[in-house]
Design a protein around this nucleic acid. Sequence first.
DNA 1: CTGAAAGCGCTTACAG
DNA 2: CTGAAAGCGCTTACAG
Lengths: 348, 348
Amino acid sequence: MADSPSPAAVTISAIAAEAGVSAPTVSRVLNGRGDVAPATRERIEGLLRTRGYRRRGSKAGDKAGEMVGLLDLVFNDLDSPWAVEIIRGVEDAAHDAGSGIVVSAIHRRASSTRQWLRNVRSRTSDGAVLVTTDLDSSLRAELDELHVPAVVIDPVGVPDLAVPTIGSTNWAGGLSAVDHLISRGHRRIGFVAGRPELWCSRARLDGYRAGLETAGLDVDPDLVVPGEFDYESGFRAGEHLFGLADPPTAVFSASDQMTLGVYEALRRRGLRVPADVSVIGFDDLPEARWASPPLTTVRQPLADMGRLAVRTVHRLVRGEAIESPRVELATELVVRDSTAAVPGRVSG
Amino acid sequence: MADSPSPAAVTISAIAAEAGVSAPTVSRVLNGRGDVAPATRERIEGLLRTRGYRRRGSKAGDKAGEMVGLLDLVFNDLDSPWAVEIIRGVEDAAHDAGSGIVVSAIHRRASSTRQWLRNVRSRTSDGAVLVTTDLDSSLRAELDELHVPAVVIDPVGVPDLAVPTIGSTNWAGGLSAVDHLISRGHRRIGFVAGRPELWCSRARLDGYRAGLETAGLDVDPDLVVPGEFDYESGFRAGEHLFGLADPPTAVFSASDQMTLGVYEALRRRGLRVPADVSVIGFDDLPEARWASPPLTTVRQPLADMGRLAVRTVHRLVRGEAIESPRVELATELVVRDSTAAVPGRVSG
DNA sequence: CTGAAAGCGCTTACAG
DNA sequence: CTGAAAGCGCTTACAG
């Protein structure tokens, strides 16, 4: 798992020797000059990649393994308050370690990803923290070649053990949300799911199911509605749930943003939180505190996840072993004012 | 205002010649080696600063004026959704220009500021965008010496014309908010102010006053309450305002976050928005859309301000002239569901 | 299209 | 504490 330190540094002249050309030719390829024979260029480019060439200043002391003081932090999108929580933790830990963080959004576009890789190569950052990114095998291979260690926060798919991932206990968090509602007497509990392709969404759903089943309750498929983690899909889910002939008395939704959409759907129907309906979210973004009424939710320690990601990348940079390729930080139920006992419940 | 390009590049040997020492000695100072006579060290450090020395790799082509592809983005704190809006715009424009952005939080601490400056020096970024930062004259002098051009978004004090600033039309925005409420028949309009030391807060307050005065209404000092831009101070302001013997029928608060606090204060008193009280905010953060009811607010184009900041820094890097040292982008009233006509108003 | 030569900016022993 | 020398990684003319 740990890279064996390359016996000789990967310099331009090393590459040149291996390719059977002179150093200036390799330099030309690196700088995108036109006047290199296609075959030569290809051979050199191949070597550059497989050997993981990275530009090293002149400084003789610039040995492999020394840190540049720059870490990349990559999101798909920067449009959610979710992102800033992670940035905060990553910035904090990086600052303590004397590193700067370079934040990018790649918008799920291959072209942006390629440009990001080009930038990483030219600026030679020490490592990368990728957030909810697919990190397909080709991207991983490229980072490997560049010798840029990566850590993934909140992996989208089944964790690939070759790259360390950091998540939270989504299943247990889902379970605790449902337990809380059941302890308040709720029996018909709706669930608004997150983006189905995401690993964490499935875990939260399964936690919801497990909570009901443990209490001896059936999972009513009518009460499980799809969502996309955003406000709009939460609003639609709320409209659907409370348009039902036999609506739930409580709703657990898999993100705070969707929960705010549920709030609005309830308000439009004249239903009050928590007097008429109890509502619980997931994440504990700042907006959960600011909702009216303040939202009961399952806290995900996003900033801590960011901090741990930085420490993990730094261990990898220094070639140290990491405890586990897969870490889940604990979620925590935060009870505020959006959950209450079932309205009008008769004693039995 | 534009730097005259230094006749000779600021290299280690240039500094050495000027200091009357050899290049290795300067190198030692730069790398913090201990074995340099204090007097020599001081002389060299002085020269390094006044000449604006910046580490330049070996590459012969690394002429002064070439871009590194890195921009610094500095916040005091990263704890508000406000920040992510600006990051989004800055990232977007920087990405288009092929630059990466290094984001830092300096927490208003001099020590963090110093560390940030050290980092800037070692990583030689092309320029800096500072958000709501004081940029006191010593910091400015240091950036000048490093030849790192800076732009300030949302300056805290009276704009210092030596550094370009980008803001929004706070005064006009405040005016438009009050106009909107007056057009709905409101006469008693409360105002929750922002942090008093900030320039933008004063402009919004003056806009509020101007709106009332234009309509021939008196400014009732009892209805103007201090705030700090955050949720908690908004909540307290709401409690105060609606504990008054003659409470307002509408409230304009100088940030969306404070407005959410006002929502909660109203909810606790059993007052409905907008049926009983109209409420209007400032910023148009995503949470304004997600509030229940969705919040009428004055939109500040934060992402656009970030984009413009990047373009401005890049002009400065290239030594181009900028149109104006002070730009204000237009605010825009966004009407949603939190404002309505005065309740129970008689026809006249 | 490619290489031998010269050179740049910087740093590391080494000597004093 | 300091400098002359050697050397590193890279690049730019220049010649062919």
